[in-house]
Design a binder for these strands. Structure first.
Lengths: 210, 210, 210, 210
DNA sequence: CATGAATGAGTCTTCATTCAT
DNA sequence: TATGAATGAAGACTCATTCAT
């Protein structure tokens, strides 16, 4: 009895996922403006109109992709930052690991997120949505900052501006991914994980006390 | 007497500069696809058609902005990297200084350049132009790499992958700028230069030997 | 029940026909370059964009008009030319009759076809399409040539270059139509068919043996 | 003293001729709509604006080409038609010869003229100019008609509609030129003159009495 | 629920024409 | 006289979005 409603519901979920996956792939590959609703519909193997059954607009679809991805990552990082029982260096490595896992598990989502600030779509989203995204985005860096501040308080890291160090680490991560992806695309082996790890060690070395 | 030709020529230069400035501003603020020729013309206070007097296409205009800026920066960095008589740390600081000067002197150009890898405009430029841009872009990181390798060879820096360190520094620069610009936009004081310097010191600390 | 799909299909066919008819009329009246997509859309009472639902480009629309018309006429003429059991004079008259019927049944298509060589649209169509059209076009004259050659072989027509005679007949046809249409437009009676017939008789007289 | 004015005047004439020649070439090769003022200016090696010193508009330039060419040909044909002392067949051959000479001497002018009716530029010229052109155009056929009527009156040609016969001859001429030009363009030898002559003979044979 | 079809509002680009020099 | 520069108006084509079925 309930089965039909259930199945319908499941199918609906699938349909939505299908759209989002296609959209994420394309937004990442071609950018917001260069991706058309038609492209997304084609990739999802549905009609243009169907997208509008589930999303109010192209805008809305975009936001619906970035927001939960960013949210998911944020929650993970918050959890890690709060494992106060671990030593700060390990927690930093864990933050990086989690971010890398997030990236590996859903590269499109990662790119959407990582790129968000860089893309000029502040013109494209409503003030509200934009603000919300900025909050989430900065939360990630904040978690790093918390761990570093802890490290300084514990005397493990040199005195320094923890926010600055957080920014350095965060941007290094994004930069390395970008760079190594480029090389990967040009046929090189996959050094993404190992380079990330190396970079973190250099920075830890730079802030470690003694 | 010769004045007329001269003035004409100067006016033409001005007109071109006017267009390029408007274009740079808008491409930076809204991205390539979201910027229309009409927007640019309006900002430059000329007609759409006039743009086509000086640039073959929107594409061409875009490229004409990115390429020489990047070229200029590249040349500066190459010069700095080759002042072998200076100690490596100073040379790294000089590279950063030069990049910062470039940024400060022409923020639009900088953003166009810095964003190049992040933007999806591999779909937008011809293979040729794209390749050329990639070359120039990677040259900048290469200069840093050279200095770092020198430092390692001289025993000043720890053994490490110089390319990796270069990437870290480069991305840190871009990240810090981005971050501090956001804060600036939200009303904070201007900590751009000082944060950059702080970040460089952390990294130098991280790679310095002994 | 099945009716819906059927009706939809019919409506779609109609829409396409609507567009083609409007296009044919305008291309004939004003020529390719002077006819705008907007003109066609207006005449068909649809939006510009709708045309692009059914045709890839203005080019494509033009070609889609000329090609099948020419093809249709070609096939008819080939059939007539091959009724070897008929005497050559009758076959020539039949070719002319068929061409006239074609003209009468779809004057726009005829004009598109007849004008093809004269119009400068070799600059407008792709090499491929242009070649195909030239083939079809020359096929028509070839059919006449075949019949004339038969007539010469059978001793009914004077020795002469059959291709030349074919050209004479073909161009006479087109010229007479053009001329009589002009007069018609100026209010004269309709002498198209009768003049055509008269002209053919003169030419037959000119090539007939004995 | 007068020399300067004279030279100026001569230069002006040259300039105008230069423009007209370029225009004629291009209008013929690419058609009215597809030929731009810029094309013409480039070929004439002057600036766009200069054209407007001598011609009110593109339209005007076009007309200024067609009209005098057609006029020139008309006058010649009128003269020939009135050499009543010659026998009709010779006069017909002379008309054809004169038309061929005209064609050979200035192919661009010929094409402009021959194509006039076929081109869709009734939409492009003013009623007045259009009417004038039509008059001139039909005058040419009228001259042929006069000769043919003379031939019939003299008992040399069969009873028939002289206008019809004139049309046949006229269109045959244009058709043969077109056809042989196509072949020429494809690398064949030049059979233009000989084919014309052959065609005329066939037609004369068709209308000759006895 | 799903979609084929339609379109209004743009986008880039071209061109005939004008005008200050 | 000649022209370099500028532009309004238009043209082909695209796309997010709606709606009847």
């Amino acid at each position: 009895m309930m089965g039909i409603t259930e199945r319908k519901s499941r199918e609906k979920e699938n349909r939505i996922k299908q759209i989002r996956d296609s959209a994420a792939t394309l937004f990442y590959k071609k950018g917001y403006a260069a991706t058309t609703i038609g492209d997304i519909a084609a990739l999802a193997e549905i009609s243009n109109a169907t997208i509008y059954l589930y999303f109010k607009s192209k805008d809305d679809l975009y936001y619906s992709l970035v927001e939960p991805s960013l949210d998911r990552l944020s929650k993970r990082l918050i959890a890690i930052a709060n494992t106060k029982e671990l030593d700060p260096e390990s927690r930093i490595r864990n933050v990086i690991s989690a971010t890398y896992d997030f990236y590996e598990g859903d590269p499109d989502a990662y790119h959407l997120v990582s790129r968000y600030e860089a893309s000029g779509f502040s013109k494209v989203l409503s003030k509200d949505k934009l603000h919300q995204l900025k909050e989430l985005m900065s939360s990630n860096i904040n978690q790093l900052e918390i761990v570093i501040a802890d490290g300084i308080a514990l005397g493990r890291f040199c005195e320094s501006n923890p926010k600055l160090t957080a920014i350095i680490i965060w941007n290094t991560f994004m930069g390395v991914i970008q760079f190594q992806e480029n090389r990967l695309a040009e046929g090189s082996s996959d050094y993404r994980r190992s380079t990330i790890d190396g970079a973190v060690e250099i920075i830890l070395q730079g802030i470690r006390k003694g």
